[in-house]
Computed example of a mutant assay.
Amino acid sequence: MTRRDLVMNFISLFNGLKHAMTVTIGGPPMNPTTPAPAGPTVSCDATIDPARRAAVEQALARLTPELGLARAVWSATEIPGGAANANFRVTTGDQRFVLRIADPNGARFGMDRGCGFAAHRAAADLLIAPPLRAAVAPDGHCLTDLVDGRSASAADLADDALLAEVGRLLARLHSSPVRIGRWSVIDATLSYVDIARSEGLTVADDTPLLIEALERTRGVFAGLPAGEVLCHNDLVPQNLIIGPEGVTLVDWEYGGMAYGDFDLGNLAMNADLSDGQVDHLMRSYLGRPATDAELARVRLMALVAALREYFWAVVADPVLNYDIEHHGVDYLGWGHRHLLKARAVVDSPELDRLLRAAAAS
C-alpha cells in the first residue's frame, strides 16, 4: 500500500465519523445526526503526518464534547506500537489521555467493539484498566486516561515478583461477576483461515493439520465443567503497563467472555515463558500449585494463541502492511515465528499428551 493509499484510507475512515454514534461514560449518547461541533485546536508533533493529524482532529471533535472539552487546545504525540489502531498521547491543560484511532478492519479480525468497550469498563471498575472516558461505536475510537509507566517486555516477565503480580491481576479479572458478550479465539482463528482461502492468500501447507489441532482442543474444553469468564484475550507483554502503582492492562479490543486459560496461555506464549515460569504464574493465579491438568490446559491455549497469531498475520498483511513503512512491522515474519512455535507442539507427541492431561478432572 502506498502512502497515498494510506492517506485516502484515513480520510475515508474519519469521514465516516460524521455518522458514528458517540458513547461517553457517564453521559447520554449523542444524536448520530447532529453535525460534529466546531473542532478543537490541536498541535501535533512534527512526526505526525497530515493524514494522521486530520484523524486526530476529527476523532477529538467527536469524543470530547461530553467531557466539556470540545473547544480545548490540545497537544498530540504519537505512541509507537499498535497493529489495528494508532495511539496518541493527547493533553489539554493538566489533563492527559490516550486517544486510540481504530483501524476500519475490526470485523475482519473478529473484534466486537461494543463488547471490547464493555470489557474495558468492567476492568476499569476493578482498577485493572485505565478509565474509559469516551468511545465511538461501532468504529472503535476511544479516549482513556493516560497511565504513568512503560510497556512490559518478555524480559520483564522473567522477574518472579512481576509475574506473580500479573497472575493475581488475572485472577481478579477472571473472578469478575460481569457477564458480557462472548469472544472465541478458536472461532476467530478459523474465520481468519476462511478469509485467507476466500482471498487466495498463502497459508501453510499443513493448515489442515493445524485446524485439526484447534478442533481437538475445542473438544477438550467443551467437555470441561469450568465456564467462561471475563477475559482480555490479547495478552502480549506490551499490553501490560508497569507503573508506580502496579500493573495496568490496556488495549481491550478483543475483550469478552472466554476461557480464562486462554489469557494465561496467551501470555505464556507471547512472553516465551518456561515451564517453571508457567508454574509460578499459575501458583500466583490459583493461590496454590497447579495440577497437571490445569498446566496442560494453559499449554494447549498457548498453542491456540500461536495459531491465532499466525493466521491473524496472514489476513492482516494485505490491509495493514503500510505499518512496515510506518512502524517497521513485518506481519508475515511475525506470523511465521508463531507458526514455528505451533508446529513444535503439533508435530510432536506433546500435543496428544497435553490433550489427554487437559481432559482429566
Rank of each mutant, 00 (worst) to 15 (best):
D5Q: 15
M8L: 12
F10K: 08
T24D: 01
I25P: 00
T34K: 00
A51M: 07
P65E: 09
V73C: 08
S75T: 15
E78W: 00
E78L: 04
A83P: 00
A83R: 11
R89Q: 10
D94I: 04
V98T: 14
R100G: 03
I101A: 07
H120G: 01
R121A: 12
R121E: 08
V147S: 09
S153E: 07
S153P: 01
D156F: 06
V166G: 02
R172I: 05
P177M: 01
G181K: 12
G181D: 15
L190A: 01
Y192A: 09
V193T: 02
I195N: 01
E212R: 13
L214H: 07
L214A: 08
T217N: 11
G223D: 02
L224S: 09
H232V: 03
D234C: 10
G243D: 05
V247E: 01
E253N: 14
Y254F: 14
G255E: 06
G256P: 03
Y259T: 11
D263K: 03
G265Q: 11
N266W: 05
L273C: 04
Y285C: 08
R288I: 02
P289D: 14
D292M: 14
A293S: 15
A293P: 03
L303Q: 04
V304G: 03
F311K: 07
D330G: 03
Y331H: 14
G333M: 11
A344T: 08
V345H: 02
V345Y: 08
E350H: 06
L355T: 08
